[in-house]
């Protein structure tokens, strides 16, 4: 389904320029600037509470920025009287009225933007909700079905720019594969595709470009390969029956040690050779000693370590 209204040089540019949003005392987004280009999938990464949803809402004209600007194709979305043909969005799969059927929900949206009614059946078929499910009330849908309906809503206007906030939530493995394929295809058609997530692993097989934020501020905006190269410090996994003693010994040598489970430690700052020597000096039995190649996950964790707001299960 090629987009006949797409310009030859691809979809529009999404531009965020010194964007700031304050809620009373908290600053959700601070002086954030980045650009999202057409023809590729751009991942929008950040830990919980980083400001991803707030940024996307400002892009859609739902939340008024305290200062700065968020534009799609050079205009704030509030300037478009009707939005669906300009930007398609899935913000929260729950942003529907549970008392309506999926078909009625999409029908009303299509009508408001003068989108022909047959588009409703097209997008329902595309997301796998055609037939009986479309006639059921959304209140009875599973999270995955709501997520699919949200994606159908985003696709309804065949828009050149698409925003997705945590679209993989609640999808089964088959659904995740399908969504990844869909994003690839949309980008391949020259559209601008911007997808948020708080899990690096989700982006690993999805995005070409990354915008990484933490505590509302920009941390990185670069290609996935460039980003991966940042995770230079390798992590060594060590398994030993006496993890406590080894952790103390390694820390004394200046390593950063994170207990993984009762027997396993994740160590950075020391090579596996050196860790083996230290264990030997202390007469400790090692059951595993492995260096992990720098992963995206590690790069992400390292970069956002300072900006994680909600740490859970941290041993004191």
């Amino acid at each position: 389904m090629p987009h006949d209204a797409l310009p030859r040089d691809g979809g529009p540019v999404i531009e965020v320029d010194r964007l700031t949003k304050r809620y009373g005392g908290t600053t959700a987004v601070r002086q954030l600037s980045f650009t999202v280009r057409p023809g590729r999938v751009t991942g929008f990464l950040g830990p919980n509470g980083a400001g991803k949803t707030t940024t996307l809402r400002m892009l859609l004209g739902l939340v008024e920025p305290t200062s700065g600007a968020a534009t799609v194709d050079g205009h704030t979305v509030r300037r478009y009287p009707r939005g669906l043909r300009h930007v398609g969005a899935l913000l929260d799969a729950g942003d529907v009225h549970g008392g309506r059927t999926a078909r009625a929900h999409l029908h009303a949206l299509a009508r408001s933007n003068r989108i022909p009614a047959h588009r409703v059946d097209e997008v329902l078929a595309e997301v796998g909700l055609a037939g009986a499910p479309a006639g059921r009330r959304v209140g009875g849908y599973s999270l995955g079905m709501k997520q699919r309906l949200g994606i159908a809503t985003a696709l309804l206007g065949d828009p050149p720019a698409l925003l997705f906030d945590e679209p993989l939530n609640g999808l089964d493995p088959e659904g995740v594969l399908w969504v990844r394929g869909l994003f690839r295809r949309l980008a391949g058609e020259g559209r601008t595709v911007f997808v948020s997530s708080h899990l690096m692993s989700e982006m690993e097989n999805t995005a070409d470009e990354l915008v990484v934020i933490g505590r509302g501020e920009l941390i990185a905006a670069e290609s996935l390969t460039e980003f991966a190269a940042r995770g230079t410090r390798p992590t060594v996994t060590v398994r030993t029956p006496d993890a406590g003693t080894l952790a103390a010994a390694l820390s004394a040598e200046g390593a950063a040690v994170a207990p993984y489970d009762g027997e396993t430690l994740k160590v950075t700052g020391l090579s596996s050779d050196r860790i083996g020597e230290i264990a030997f000096e202390h007469g400790l039995l090692l059951r595993e000693l492995a260096t992990e190649t720098a992963s995206l996950e590690a790069a992400f964790m390292e970069l956002t370590a300072d900006s994680v707001e909600y740490l859970a299960g941290e041993p004191r």
Partner: peptide, 14 residues
Amino acid sequence: TTGLVRTTFAAVPD
């Protein structure tokens, strides 16, 4: 209360 308002206003920014 349902959050539909966000979908509505994104579709009709006017």
